[in-house]
Structures are given as structure tokens and as C-alpha cells.
Amino acid sequence: MKPYNILIVGVGGQGILLASRVIGTAALKENYDVKVSEVHGMAQRGGSVVTHVKLAQKVYSPLIEKGEADLIISFEQLEAFRWAPYLRKEGTLIVNTQKINPMPVIIGNAQYPKEIIPKLKDHFSHVHDIDAFGISKQIGNTKAVNTVLLGVSAHFIDLQKESWYSTLQEVIPPAHLDMNIKAFESGYNHISTI
């Protein structure tokens, strides 16, 4: 059982907590020791948000250190850039191409960095950029960005298909399940086209 560290980053309110809970619960089904460290409270109001998910035979610290993430799932471009120092050199970075301006940019006190994805690709050889918002919109629900990204990440997390599906059934309210399964599969199938 190889230790696997996943950092999920984005902007408060994007549905990051749900994504980390799905991964954690699915990993528990496969007898990993699991720790998921979340952010609640003030940062959830549109701040920079990070959730740590650690899978191993035995996990002590709930936090991933710089340079020790095997996978970063970023819900937003700037946040991918901000948290990139946490990725191992050979790690995988999934980045939703969506941009959300932070307040210093909106009020003209700072610039949103340009060409983030090419810069990340210069540093890391496994960068996958995905328009998860676009895919989510095509499915007909712009709130499914998190499930689309989970579908993409399923390629890189060593868990069985059944674990993902049974977890989605447990975690997502029945009324939204079909749409989320569709979103998960759209994300999963998207990667082959990259």
C-alpha cells in the first residue's frame, strides 16, 4: 500500500470539501488509513482554500508538507500556481482552467499572473488542464465542477471503480446523484482526449 498525498485547492465555496470527502471515503473502502484535513470558517467565504488528503498504511500528520503531494487537484488557475510548491517534481497536477479574480486584482492592487498553465508545464511534466466549468455547463449544471474534477482525478488515484461509485451514492443526495455520476464520467472520459 503506497502512501499517496492529494492536495485539493481552490476558492472557498467551490465544493472542495465534498471532493475531499469522496476521496477519503472511497479510500477507506480499500482499507487505507486516511486523514483528510479541511478548512472551515472564514476562508470558506471566497478565500484561498486547501484540503489535504493522505492515504497510507498508517498516517500520522494530517498535513502534506511542501514538495510531498503526489497529486494536486486545483479548482482554479491562480490557486494551482499558489500551491504548486507542494507538488513533488514527478507529481501530477490537474488544473481547472477557470479563473476567479481575488479582491486585490478586482480593485487593481495586483495583477492576475499571466500564462500560468505554460509556466506550470515548464516545471512539471504531468500537468492536465481541463475546462471543468465548461464541461459542467454542458451537462446542464454549473455546480458539478467538483465531480467533473473527481472524474479526472480517478485516473491517478489507485482506487477501484466500484469504490468511487458506491461512495458517490453514499455522499451525494439522491436528487443530485444522476447528474453527478454523469459529471464524474464526463471528467473521467475527458482525460483520454488530452
Binding site: G46, P85, F124
Partner: peptide, 20 residues
């Protein structure tokens, strides 16, 4: 010594919480 990691040369704007 800390694990060597990517150091970003450009400054990254902070993202403080905001009113929704």
C-alpha cells in the same frame, strides 16, 4: 534542510476571504 521545491519567481496575489 527542507525538501527542495518549486520556488515561484513572480508574486502571487493573496486571496483573502470576501463577502459572497
Amino acid at each position: 534542510p527542507p525538501t527542495p521545491t518549486l520556488t515561484l519567481s513572480e508574486s502571487i496575489p493573496v486571496r483573502p476571504p470576501v463577502l459572497c
